[in-house]
Design a protein around this nucleic acid. Structure first.
Lengths: 155, 155
DNA sequence: GGTGAAAGCGATGCATA
DNA sequence: TATGCATCGCTTTCACC
């Protein structure tokens, strides 16, 4: 399943738009040796079929005062379906939680939390996260340095 | 530092472009009650000053055969500056490692690894990650379900 | 710094192969 | 399905406020 139903041109489009979503069809056409009309149709198809989910601007978190990134591992007390659903439903409401995954292994969920500083994190933990029902343990780890942050899949 | 040196129009632009990088200046202008020329100048400034780092297409990993996401916690044996730098220099070369952070706490690095399946992960671990010098322990956790994956900072 | 208008350029739809 | 062409609309610049 690699490539699935994508030809070389489709792969090329995905590779290039993952690096820069603002590339014009003209630039893509030049790079991939196709006409702009062909590229236009391919891009339309890649979007309508869901290969490209969306295009977003990546903002510098530090420049807008989000200087602290935490990864918090959450273990729940109960693991019934309704307990899991209830946690998921509540945690996604917190704007500080930018990512949340249900995991295998020693804990249940991992959260990526983005916030201004440690005081704010402390406050978030005490007044928001720990207030949810069914929270067992929360273990927090903080990013000291970002070594690699890639949004583009290798193709 | 919230807002730093950004006015309401700048914040609005960041908020909207974080949701959809392909919005036209005309659409932004309509939404924010400014002229297209003003929006054009503001967007140019936000990019040149680094508030907007880049614009990217978000591709559906599962549709291109990247069905397994792992978070792997790596502990090194030695923690000299050169040992840390050496690990960082090597690990970023792996295309499977889309994110890598140097962390506080019980382990040194957390890696987000995106790959086709568990067989491929096993192979990656044995033939690539564990081959790096100075690796102490690697603990792997796998994503069962994505609850929230947000790229936009709350503004 | 913001605006409106003019000019240039790319996006978009279509007829054709 | 891919292409060239023609039209339309947005981007970009500039003189002015």
């Amino acid at each position: 399943m690699n490539p699935p139903n994508l030809d070389k041109t489709d792969i090329g489009i995905l590779r290039l738009l993952q690096q820069d979503a603002l590339l014009s069809n003209k630039q893509l056409a030049l790079e991939l040796n196709k006409s702009t009309a062909t590229i236009h149709e391919r891009v339309r198809r890649l979007k309508s079929e869901g290969y490209i989910k969306r295009s977003v601007a990546i903002v510098d978190g530090k420049k807008i005062g989000k200087s602290l990134i935490a990864y918090s591992q959450v273990q729940l007390k109960e693991h019934t379906d309704s307990a899991l659903s209830s946690f998921e439903k509540e945690v996604v409401k917190f704007p500080e939680v930018m990512e949340c995954y249900h995991m295998t292994g020693a804990f249940d969920f991992i959260l990526r939390i983005v916030i201004s500083d440690m005081d704010a994190y402390h406050n978030f933990l005490r007044s928001k996260l720990a207030q949810l029902s069914n929270i067992g343990t929360v273990q927090s780890f903080f990013v000291m340095s970002e070594i690699k942050t890639e949004t583009a899949y290798p193709l």
